[in-house]
Structure formats: C-alpha cells, structure tokens
Amino acid sequence: MRNARLLASQVRYEQKAFWRNPAAGIFTVGFPIMFLLIFGSTNHSTHVTGNPGVSYDQYLVPAMLAYGLMNSCFTALAIAMTIRRESGILKRIKGTPLPPYIFLGGVIGNSVLISILTTVIVVTIGIAEFGVSMPTHPAAFVVVILIGVVAFCTMGLAVTIFVPNADSAPAIVNGIYLPIIFISGVFFPISNTSILHKIGNVFPVNHFAQSLLATFAGYGPGFGITFREFSVVIIWSIVSLWIAIRRFRWEPRK
C-alpha cells in the first residue's frame, strides 16, 4: 500500500519534471504529430504497396504511433536516464531509502502516461484530419500499445549501459533507433523480400508496428494479434529487463 502510494507520487514527480522542460515535451510528443501531418498530407489517398486494400493513411497512423511510442519510451527515456546518471541524480536516489524498483517504476509510469497522450492525439488527428476509422479491435489495440510501451521502456533502460557519458547519449541512442525505425518500415513500407526487411524483423519495432496496424486497421485474422509478431516483442522486453536488472548503472563513470 505504502509502495503503491510511493509509486504514484514518483509518477507525479516525473511528470512534473518532464513537462517543466519545454524542449523535452515538444520533441517527444510533437515529433510524431509533425511527421503524421507531413507524410499524411503529402501522400494522401495513395495505397500501400504490399498491403493492398489498406490506404496509406490507415497505415500511417499506427506507424507514426509506433514511432512516437518508441520516441517517448526508448529514446527519451534512455537519454534522460543517462543524463541523470552522469549528473549524479541516480546516485543520490541510491543513497535514500526509496526502493530502486519504485524509482524505475516511476520513470516507466511517466513514459506510459506520455504514450497514452501521444496515442490519443495521433489517433484523433488521424480520424479528424485524414478520415481513418476508429481502431477495429480497440481492446487488442490497447493491449498491443501497453506491451510495446513496456518493451521499449526496458530497452531504453538496458541501452543506457552502453552509453559512456551524457554527451554521447543522443548520438548513440539516435544512432541505434533511427536505422531500426527505417528498416522496420515505419516511415516507408519495405518490400517483404528485401534483406533489410529480414534484418528489421530481428528487432521488435516492425512486429510492434504490424500488430498495431492489424488491430487498428482490422488487418489479418482474429483480433489482429498474432503470436509470432508478439513473441518477438515480448522476448525483447524480457531480455532487456534481464540486462537492465543485472547491469544498470546508478553512478557516473569516473
């Protein structure tokens, strides 16, 4: 009970710290909206190659969501945590009785809230501006988002291990995530037979985006969640969590 209260208070605190820094808010939530508006307006009413019957907009909305959620959960979280680690904020937390998992829970909770906001805005713009329809399987859509968000957050925590200092954080994190985003076909659909597609399929982003597309556009069988797509996302999140628990650093590198 006390831990639940502590966690809620940590999430509130993280939210406050996040929104007080206007640059962070604009870049994290603003980017997917900006790309949705740009790509949606330039490619309006075209169809997606490889997915006949799906309009580009119907494809673009879940794709921009995949991008936006990875942005707020993986990129923003990894950069912010590296900066906090190097400036000693994490070390200070370690010197208090606050349980580390509650602190990290607060950080992830903050990303979940930002993700929910991003989802609402992106879907609303999609419906209002580009005439896409509401998610076909709303419950499955929400489940996909929540599992993806947790996966990207744990990947964000794990990747900080490989970032030596705060200055290199944006370069390293973007250097990892931009290529993955591109080869995962988030911005432009990639041919199913290409080598890039095969490499991209190792990473969870394409599987996440495909699951989002399937639940959002009602594409594919059942509720749109396929075990094959989902298992990759879940394996990535379990492995990342395992790495993060074992190797996460709370202190700056000397």
């Binding site: 710290a17 820094n21 400036s87 904020i89 070390k91």
Partner: peptide, 18 residues
C-alpha cells in the same frame, strides 16, 4: 540504514526545472 543517514555527495545535480 538509509533511513538513518543523510548523504551529501561531492558532485551531484538536482532536477533543474523543479
């Protein structure tokens, strides 16, 4: 133990926007 001690580290910043 952490409940009973207070630590001031050598170099340590505080969330700047709060």
């Amino acid at each position: 133990y952490k409940e009973r001690v207070g630590i001031v580290l050598q170099e340590c910043s505080i969330d700047p926007f709060l």
